[in-house]
Design a protein around this nucleic acid. Sequence first.
DNA 1: TTGCGTGCAAAGGTTTTGCATGGCA
DNA 2: TGCCATGCAAAACCTTTGCACGCAA
Lengths: 134, 134
Amino acid sequence: MSYSTKKRSMILEYLKEHSDNDVSVKEIEESLNKHSGECINVSTIYRYLDKLAIEGMVLKHTSENGKQSTFQYVQENAQCHNHLHMKCSKCGRIYHIDCGFMDELKEHIYRHHHFTIECKTSMLYGICEHCKNE
Amino acid sequence: MSYSTKKRSMILEYLKEHSDNDVSVKEIEESLNKHSGECINVSTIYRYLDKLAIEGMVLKHTSENGKQSTFQYVQENAQCHNHLHMKCSKCGRIYHIDCGFMDELKEHIYRHHHFTIECKTSMLYGICEHCKNE
DNA sequence: TTGCGTGCAAAGGTTTTGCATGGCA
DNA sequence: TGCCATGCAAAACCTTTGCACGCAA
């Protein structure tokens, strides 16, 4: 059904190493072409990432300026499909909001605003602690 | 500083009529070219919308599939810069979440997650009441 | 008349697609 | 051997830009 190849494991490894960010196809391409002897084509990356997104192993977002798709690796045990994410507009880091209050939030939105939030496509933007103090 | 022209008022009128949605440049172009005798160029629309976004009269988003920019008209008295929005993935309608609980949310995120949410660029996706019952 | 607004065409960037070739199982 | 994966080039889109002309004030 699906072969395991060297290029695919390189892409996946890159995603894992950058799992606290979302990454663009261009970033993946440039990094892999620079740091590995191999040459990897963007089509290959696009096709593989789409596949991973369908399988749920990555979340597909859109960069804040809206000009690129970005992909976020979903860690094994993180319930990324069940909690929201915040992305810092400055450093690009992604934070997982996994706490009781957020469950209340979903409940509140459902009860009072009659809306069922889907976490995997939603994203909150703002400034993180680190970047605020600079 | 800024001239008022027929094309601009047509664009603005379209935005106002569709203020419970976000609209793409293509939608605006097609609708105006179909329903008015005039022919309007996409460049014109892009340039005007960028201007409105800078002035804060529209919010610029990215469509859920990430392939287009979309624009949401900010009603006069709606504090769209201070509350979050939810967009229904099915019907595309945008809902304003303006209530005390959401202020608590911002407070909670700030206190416990050390993150300052920016409402005008954030968007929650999900399914609204209407579409759920279909 | 001055300077902004507009159309057109071209360019730029991202993503997709068709087809031939390469490589896993 | 049979499929899937890949590279390449072209195409498809969306958006921006330069320039000449049009139009509001």
